[in-house]
């Protein structure tokens, strides 16, 4: 696992290393007075009741809160999968709260990467092809797709697993394929909704290690939903939701360091299948 990460293998030379607490850094996410109301027949469900949240480039933010507090709804809006009922949202300086379905798809393609709790890989499709998928929609040439996907899989420690199908990979490996897929189009922002929810504790640390490296070494902004305080402790900022509002928003003084912890954890077999 120690060889999992190699600085400098990334494409574009895109090492946007930004100081984590740089007050001058540009805002990637600017949510203002966001409301989201679902109407189910006569009943109106107020999932979000005025959320204002700014996240700067290079931040690693964990979103916490009880079930039904509006975490996923917020993530869907940030991820341009959904539009707010009211309020404004600027992503990377661009107002995206009123975009069409196609325009939102383009934003997701170019600027965002998603990591889900259930991995959401295409079944019966190799790891390599799963990672190539976003580039397919971006119209990137086959040779270039292949090269970048292979690199991304190397970067998450899956060299040699390119041809494996999801059912031939462990949960942790599947999640790493999903991370490789999320970062292959060189996104501004990676959104992860309970990415460790389906993983055991050691594998969770490994996944958090990858996230921390992406954040620190490539300056990718990360927003991660979790209900585990242990996981939130790897972030440098925590936002707590309650009843569709932000209840708390604080900085973590000394975030956990996944790489350090992995060194101290007893070694496991290289093949964890």
């Amino acid at each position: 696992m120690q060889t999992a990460f190699e600085v400098g293998v990334f494409d574009n030379g895109a090492h946007r290393v930004v100081l984590t607490h740089d007050p001058e850094a540009p805002e990637v996410i600017r949510l203002e007075g966001i409301h989201k109301t679902y109407s189910m027949g006569d009943v109106e469900v107020h999932a979000l009741r005025g959320v204002t949240l700014n996240i700067k480039e290079g931040e690693f933010v964990a979103i916490m809160g009880t079930s039904g507090s509006g975490k996923s709804t917020t993530m869907n809006i940030i991820g341009c999968l959904d539009s707010p009922t009211r309020g404004s949202y600027a992503l990377d300086g661009e107002d995206v709260s009123t975009l069409s379905k196609d325009e939102r798809a383009d934003i997701r393609l170019r600027k965002l990467g998603f990591v889900f709790q259930g991995f959401n890989l295409l079944s019966r499709t190799s790891a390599l092809e799963n990672v190539e998928l976003p580039m397919l929609y971006a119209g990137i040439e086959p040779a270039e797709r292949h090269r970048r996907a292979t690199e991304a899989l190397h970067a998450v420690g899956l060299a040699g697993r390119e041809q494996n199908h999801p059912n031939q990979l462990s949960g942790g490996q599947q999640q790493r394929v999903a991370i490789a897929r999320a970062l292959v189009n060189d996104p501004k922002l990676i959104l992860a909704d309970e990415p460790t929810g389906a993983l055991d504790s050691r594998t969770s640390v490994e996944v958090m290690d990858i996230f921390q490296r992406l954040n620190r070494e490539r300056g990718i902004t990360l927003v991660l939903v979790t209900h585990e305080p242990d996981i939130a402790a790897y972030a440098d900022r925590v936002v707590v939701f309650r009843d569709g509002r932000i209840q708390k928003d604080y900085r973590v003084n000394a975030p956990r360091d996944a790489a350090e912890e992995l060194k101290n954890l007893p070694a496991v077999d290289e093949d964890e299948e």
């Binding site: 379905k101 196609d102 798809a105 997701r108 965002l112 295409l122 998928l133 929609y137 189009n185």
Partner: peptide, 16 residues
Amino acid sequence: TREIGIRMAIGARSSA
């Protein structure tokens, strides 16, 4: 349906 959802989340347009 799930595959379609994945493709769309990743950035596939409806037309694709």
